[in-house]
Nucleic acid binder design. Sequence first.
DNA 1: TTGAAAGCGTTACCAG
DNA 2: CTGGTAACGCTTTCAA
Lengths: 340, 340
Amino acid sequence: MVNLKELSKALELSQTTVSRALNGYPEVSAKTRDRVVEMARQLGYEPNLQARRLATGRSMAIGHVIPRSVHDMMNPIFLEFIAGAGQTYATHGYDMIISVVEDNNEEDAFREIASRKKADGVILQGPRINDRRHDLLDQLGLPFVVHGRITGAEERTSWIDVNNRRAFERATNLLIDLGHKRIALINGLETMDFAVRRRTGYETALQAHGLEPDQKLMSSADMTEPYGAETAIRLLKSQEPPTAFLVSSMISAIGVARGISLCGLRIGKDVSVITHDDALSFLPNSGEVPIFTCTRSSVRYAGIRAAEMIIQKVNEEGDEHAYEHLEAELILGQSTGPAP
Amino acid sequence: MVNLKELSKALELSQTTVSRALNGYPEVSAKTRDRVVEMARQLGYEPNLQARRLATGRSMAIGHVIPRSVHDMMNPIFLEFIAGAGQTYATHGYDMIISVVEDNNEEDAFREIASRKKADGVILQGPRINDRRHDLLDQLGLPFVVHGRITGAEERTSWIDVNNRRAFERATNLLIDLGHKRIALINGLETMDFAVRRRTGYETALQAHGLEPDQKLMSSADMTEPYGAETAIRLLKSQEPPTAFLVSSMISAIGVARGISLCGLRIGKDVSVITHDDALSFLPNSGEVPIFTCTRSSVRYAGIRAAEMIIQKVNEEGDEHAYEHLEAELILGQSTGPAP
DNA sequence: TTGAAAGCGTTACCAG
DNA sequence: CTGGTAACGCTTTCAA
């Protein structure tokens, strides 16, 4: 394990020059640089990260703080996002450090990242309604990118988000076009920013077609499989059952499908279903004709882009914020058909 | 942001003494220690991690390297494991660094962790048949704990694993006791160590009851939902359909259930299903009578224990290996009944 | 284009 | 019990 000192001794050059040659500084002659690079390769020199970090004051890492409650319910989505982000970090020489913390410790986690310089920047996960975390991060001087959006702080933060409102509006429109009038919304927890946007899109479409949103057809909870099944059954057995369901996640949609078939109904015939699909690898909804008609947006891609954004942000002094608004695709599958 | 120098100046003590007081060395007088601690609190002193890492040569981080292919199919399980591990790391002052790498880059990832001291130890994820990664890690001198087991290297590695063979043997026994004779195995990819163990348990139970394992009833693939559904349908429509399914993951089991109902059969009546349940938070299978009869083992708990093991390993010079063998619970749900 | 030397903020050895 | 001082391995300023 050679270090810079030994390497420079072997080359009969100063540490300074060797360091400069290796880090691509312009003022070293091409000849010396080649010699240095070659020798470094031969001796298997790898700069010590801790030393570099100490010297530069940069940790070359990005932090992801995941509150337990959020993690619990969005687990698969997170990992997919993280996988995308991790890929990008790797190619840029950044490490990814992940902290899964109890909900009430999230602030401390951020403070520690900032004060002990564990990371040069962070990704803000799972923005909530009235989220104040961006204030804390600004105050800590910790650069960040929001995965999702904080309503009301769009101009004061960098973020990447799916156009959830529009996706759900389009999905609702499709159902209405198919003749559905009673459309249920099986939404995620509406303490989450994205869930509210989705409901807005749904309500907007209904109202644009003269349909009055019916509270009895809307529900909001953690997006588990049983939640989908139970809600579907409850609604299908009610006085005025819906003929279609708009669901916030594949997991719950699978539950909804189960509920529908438990009620002796056929999905795509008696009852239509559209779900949002995050394109998770273990829940493929592809093929010629996907099982579920869906609004699809790759959360892995979002991770890739979020990572690129935070890296850029960390490296630039510029104070401007960057946004990226992704449009979901509306993909026709087997789970929708004309209203009976 | 005070540093040690300023803190010691404020106290009119040497850096040495202050450092010792803060790090709990015994040779500091109680009085001085109190004074130091108090002043540190007042000034909000927090030791710089990078400096400490450089000085001690320890990175105070544990690495998790996740090959893409493995990630893709086991995504939810990984994050649950990681959540457990992360919790433990946090309480012990360790960081968790995650690398999601292309399959053919896994070796490089380990080498880099070792040579650049990115982490003091790693968790080896998703052991495969004829896995050689432990050799590499030994050679790199990087302490590690296997999540799962490497058949043939049990004595030469530290590991934590569920007793998969036994779990599947018991599950098969239960089905046999219920009168089932044609039991299908919907297994994970049998390039994975755990999948082979599961099949062994299944075959052992069959043979112990004089039933000949039938290759036509066994399948092995990535554990997606459609895989479960398609395989179930194919088998149920075959010449000699099974009356029961033993499934390797909740996700595929949900697919199996869908397949069964698409065939017009009732789960728990016409066809029985037992699945392995990793106790993922977004796929709850609990309640009074769980939907699926299952062999259950918390993968989050495995993460917690694995983290404890690697931390201990990193901190001790001892060369002995540690093992932990978890027994899965066999839990009766609604998806099993007597053979028709 | 190159080099000497001063940091970066700790920990750890050796004296006293 | 306390302090001086030398690492730790790199980057960066200042001079040449």
